[in-house]
Design a protein around this nucleic acid. Structure first.
Lengths: 255, 255
DNA sequence: GCGCGCGTTCGAATAGCGGGAACAAACCTT
DNA sequence: AAGGTTTGTTCCCGCTATTCGAACGCGCGC
């Protein structure tokens, strides 16, 4: 495990997923449209698309194709078998009912945060977040909570890779500032987000750690900035949230 | 469109998805395990898996791999952009709140029913249904409602293909019986399910039709057999349900 | 400590992928 | 109505990229 052999990827597989990516971004597209976009011969795209269609992975609608609900089956399966899902879901529901705000369960995968479950409170804010949404870890409360509780070298490598892109004017883009925030987060156990991912939205996030103390995910509570402020944001909600994540960690260890 | 050209599929793509299928069924597997299952050389599986990993489509955990949450992103995207999703979701929630039972939104794709959204009522039965679940149309209320409102030739072709496999002892396996039920369903506008998909569970299903009168999906209400019986099952719930699907159809036409 | 089993690497052979050109049908435009 | 444009579809050839099998090195457990 030292050398870099030439690991050339299987190009045919890459083009297949390139095609699927085009279909994912364009809702529905035809053969020529895809071929133009990817700079491939029509015949190549044709054969690939027919292959995917025969597997049921894309669905034909007249002369255009869209990706099929098999991906929903694959995706929900992935989510449901994640160790955090079963134990976190009921707690997320509880938190949403108690706080009346939007509550998310986020896991870490390859250095990004993935929203795997969300519960609506009665006064939930509507953001563009949705199940499956991937967000850079430094841009939101749950992500920062995860980042702060990852092994130091992994955290640094993740920061190297994603380079602190800004999402709003408040997003932390300075590495030193982020480092000191992460330190604070480690000390008090939870993270705050002041309009760093969506303007007008504040949030609290707390990590869910495994036996070795590394974060495998996080839970967050988000709401409008004017409602989530003062002691509610810095005391009441964190207390509630930490209680929940603590319970989740215990259940996680015994499952 | 008469001859049978030799439509040979792209085999490399097929093996890639064969690998993904193995990973989907086994939670997590190693290179050799996959290679044995598929009768492929270890080196082939190795290269494919590394390709999928470099795209983030599978995730490595020590020496085993699992499929990644990208499929959740793909899948939820497919669901959200389905025309039925946005208009059906609020109605499904309403029905669940009003009836206190489990309510599902199902769409038809390639002759199978796909559960794309479900809402819990306070007394929901727990079945093995979940988002993304695919079910043969003849086996459940929503599916029969769809089948009854598909163009006759398409419906027949679907029945040819799936051959009326039984799910419980009550599942309709006789084609003539099914045909006469579908006729009844067309007349009264809704379908009933007496333990045909899950023993102990009854359900009502009604189709959602597009402008041309063909079903694109259906909504169903399911609950324990002893609670869902008598006039509730044959009168009250159908009335409620048909009101909802009617509204959905109107909203669908204006969107 | 020895061996089985795992992931990993390499090279070689061939089959299968990709491209381009040509066809057919549908669709506008005129 | 006719011709031009664009689409999906088919065919075939050449070359490359995929596949396989064998060999290596490592770690785990018997």
């Amino acid at each position: 495990m030292a050398r870099h052999p030439d690991h050339r990827p299987v190009e045919t597989v890459e083009t297949a997923f390139d095609i699927l990516d085009v279909l994912r971004h364009t809702t529905s597209a035809g053969i020529t449209e895809i071929a133009d976009e990817l700079d491939l011969a029509k015949s190549t795209v044709y054969r690939h698309t027919k292959t995917l269609e025969s597997r049921g992975l894309v669905v034909r609608n007249g002369d255009t194709y869209r990706i099929s609900t098999w991906f929903l089956d694959y995706g929900i399966h992935v989510r449901n078998q994640h160790p955090l899902f079963d134990v976190a879901t009921p707690k997320v529901d509880e938190l949403a009912a108690e706080t009346d705000e939007k509550v998310w369960c986020v896991i870490e995968e390859n250095g990004v945060g993935v929203h795997i479950y969300g519960a609506e409170g009665r006064h939930s804010v509507r953001t563009h977040a949705r199940i499956g949404k991937r967000t850079a870890l430094h841009q939101f409360a749950a992500g920062k909570a995860i980042l702060a509780h990852l092994p130091a070298d992994r955290a640094e490598r993740i920061l190297d890779e994603y380079d602190l892109a800004a999402q709003t004017a408040q997003t932390i883009t300075d590495r030193d500032e982020l480092r000191s925030q992460l330190e604070t987060i480690r000390e008090r156990g939870y993270a705050l987000n002041y309009e760093e991912s969506v303007s007008g939205v504040h949030a609290v996030g707390a990590p869910v750690k495994d036996e070795s103390g590394d974060a495998i995910g996080a839970i967050s509570i988000a709401g409008p900035a004017n409602r989530l402020s003062g002691e509610l944001l810095t005391d009441d909600l964190p207390t509630l949230l930490l209680g929940a994540t603590n319970e989740i960690e215990i259940n996680l260890a015994h499952s």
